[in-house]
Design a protein around this nucleic acid. Structure first.
Lengths: 179, 179
DNA sequence: AATTTATTTCATAGATTTCTGTAAAGACAG
DNA sequence: CTGTCTTTACAGAAATCTATGAAATAAATT
């Protein structure tokens, strides 16, 4: 990892590890980290040099980041190479990631749970009845999460932040006790 | 996958796939799915038979689930084998998972971001200054999420659910516009 | 203590994912 | 159209992760 100050290396390596814990390829996460803290857009070659990974790996990883919608191509005048830059606003970034995860993970799970609960029909034994009940509970939970995501998505960032910051005060206002 | 109705198989297979997208071993997720919809605690042997995986795999996976705190050992009278049951309440389940993910992922990231921002010191060039600024933004975001988690954890389930369900109404009450 | 039953550990086989180098394709200037 | 620069696709190598069976350990029963 060349030409990067230690604090940046620190962060990039950690972000890479964190990525793997979330099912995201290490290199993909590292490239994202690099672009996120880089003021100027970088070209693929530059990313290669800094992270010390193969050109083709960078190419594929960049495509993956573009699929997620958190990295964009830009062109600099007088340079025909593609340059890449990350979404720089933290809230915008996580909003995009949340929306994408919902689409890829929550939505298919909702469909599966509906289908499974449906297929269970009228259970003819207690075990199946119990299982169906559990699936319905899970479905209810995922529906709640899904609706919440959508509400957040329609909200301006400021409102969403307020909800996160004031979570406990809101609960008190609603007349419920916090332990 | 033997002795399970199709709707249960459906769910277990999907939960397994979903697990892999979240960095959780497929078998671990499948075992959890099975225990979650099973009214009675199951022993390792029973899990083997139903899922068709090796005994040792089940043993290790069960240990992993116990580390997460979402599966517990119980003993049935007159049977010396360990039996296992999942946390059955959906809210309780996700509360535990969230707390655990915070501990394993958010907290280390907070530490790393603080360390990195700290190491950056007084940047002596604009690029480093920008990078440090981005890290500080990220740190602020993770601190917000971390605090929110903790607030939720101290709240009774009902209050947490209210916040999730009423997200947009709350925002309106706070005097902010939803798009 | 010996036997039976249950569980865990561990080395390795197997599968999957990731990374690389090369070759092909595409884009552009002259 | 040709030559150069750039990006992408792909096949195989390398690394990582997962699952297995056998052996070791532990626990209960006789």
């Amino acid at each position: 990892m060349i030409g990067l100050p230690p604090f940046a290396q620190n962060f990039i390596l950690h972000w890479g590890e964190m990525g793997t814990k979330w099912g995201i390829n290490r290199t993909v996460a590292q490239i994202h980290a690099l672009l996120f803290i880089s003021e100027e857009p970088l070209n693929a070659e530059g990313i290669c040099n800094r992270l010390g990974v193969a050109r083709s790996n960078v190419s594929n990883s960049l495509k993956e980041l573009q699929n997620w919608g958190i990295v964009n191509v830009v062109h600099l005048p007088g340079d025909r190479r593609d340059h890449f830059e990350s979404v720089k606003d933290v809230y915008e970034l996580f909003r995009i990631i949340a929306t994408e995860r919902k689409r890829r993970e929550i939505d298919p799970t909702l469909r599966n749970l509906r289908k499974s609960a449906d297929e269970a029909g009228e259970p003819n034994n207690p075990a199946d009845a119990y299982a169906k009940g559990q699936l319905e509970d899970l479905l209810g939970f995922f529906e709640m999460i899904s609706d919440f995501y959508e509400k957040m998505d329609r909200m301006p960032t400021k409102s969403a932040v307020k909800i996160f910051r004031m979570g406990d005060k809101i609960a008190k206002t609603l007349g419920v006790i916090t332990k």
